[in-house]
Write a protein that binds this DNA or RNA. Sequence first.
RNA 1: GGCGGUAUCGUCUAGGGGACUAGGACACAGCCCUCUCAAGGCUGGAACACGGGUUCGAAUCCCGUUACCGCUACCA
Length: 490
Amino acid sequence: MPASIPRLRFAPSPTGYLHVGGARTALFNWLYARKYGGQFLLRIEDTDRARSTDESTRAIFEGLEWLGLGWDEEVVHQGANLDRHQADARRMLDNGTAYRCFCTQEELAERRAAAEARGESFRYDRRCDRIPAGEVARRVAAGEPFTVRFRVPDGTTSWDDLVHDEIAFPNKDIEDFIVLRTDGTPIYNLAVVSDDIAMRITLVMRGDDHISNTPKQIMLYRALGAELPRFAHLPMIHGIDGKKLSKRHGATAVGDYQHLGILPSAMLNFLALLGWSPGNDVEVMTLDRMIELFDVGGLQKKAAIFDPKKLEWMNGQHLSMISAAELLERVVPALEAEGYATVAELEGRRDWLLGLLELLKVRARTIDDIVRQASPYFRGAIEYDPDAVAKGWKDRSGSAEILERTRETLASVPEWTAASMEEALRALAERLGFAEKAGKVFQPLRIALTGLTASPGIFDVLLVLGRERTLSRIDDAVAWLRASATPFAR
RNA sequence: GGCGGUAUCGUCUAGGGGACUAGGACACAGCCCUCUCAAGGCUGGAACACGGGUUCGAAUCCCGUUACCGCUACCA
């Protein structure tokens, strides 16, 4: 439990879509803030003007909104803080923790290549740090371009990571790194530290890939005389082949899963379990439960592999967990998009739709599944699945006869309720010699009604369809069967 | 190459010296339920990377090896 009010941030760079790895980082930051009454901030790291786009920024907002990970203060755009970044670089120049470097990129590249050719690893040799002050002033005055380099002190830089415990880097392995480019724009590490200080961030929780940036950033905090935040480095998420998750692995953007019919709560739940475990074999959780259970002690050090199969299963769990009414807002637009009905029509049949969703959601793994399975209950005429016909209507005329008898039975059932229909249909099965094998009646009927071999319970289907549509679909089926019966059958 | 990180079933993980003949979940297989399909229930196969220590005792602690990942830019 933190002593003061924690302030965390999620700081993506707007160079693509909101990646599932980013979403998980955001989630853990958000969970921590919610759990301990802290603030969760959002910062867009758009200092790389060439790669940053407004479209990406929008995609990040949309992704976070869809997931329900709201941020607490106004969004910070890193690019807007250029003045402060430069001022901080200036301060380091003034307090002697940084120096001007006149080496050009070309010279540096040459020296790097030469070192590599010799089989040595290149590290900046600090030659510009040895230029006398007078000469530096002269060259600056003459308009010679320079970068600002941080002078890495001797010693070791270490911190107590919330997930890895102690991590230490010998400073001698870190070269004097550039913090400000010749054009006066900041390098990543400076921008991050400057902003994190300004935003009064107390816990930096981010991906593992930033571990080697951390000692540099810690040195920058010290050079700027700022208090250090805590650090927590989350494991990466890999694709099924153990490599960094990328487009090759299929859907990696949060938006992809949204369009695949995944529920945000399931996405969040699944992501939370990648790199974190609440213990006690708990897996399926609501967001509130996650907040309650979240603890950095349960954070994993090892990279996790993203398994879409488990995501689907998780979605199925959340689908059966939430009410049909909650499902409505996601399913209705999808049904309209499919052309089954308009939103207004669906609203007019709300109770009927609710009943249908109740039947479908337990059998579906995604919203898309639900829409697909809902088809027979909306379309006027249905198509008969070839496999269903081959399996359940093998005997055309026999099936037609059974269906005709079924029609008579249903037409005269006293009331359209599951109980009375079941009673009547089972009695029919018995009369037809299918005692204990009522499926011989139910299956042909199921195909007549849905065109498929699989559906919700037959009486539920009957109820959803209503008497009129049921009877007319049976008529259609009988006609179809008679028409397709072969001549030799006679 | 250098530096850093990581290592339990195919996958996500529980485990923090004895409760481990290593637990749960996904996936897979079988059975039950049953009008079909799901859901659900039950059962099964399946793991402590390797080698040294420390200890009465190690999946758990230490060291080394190996493998994998990350960083090593005037990218973020």
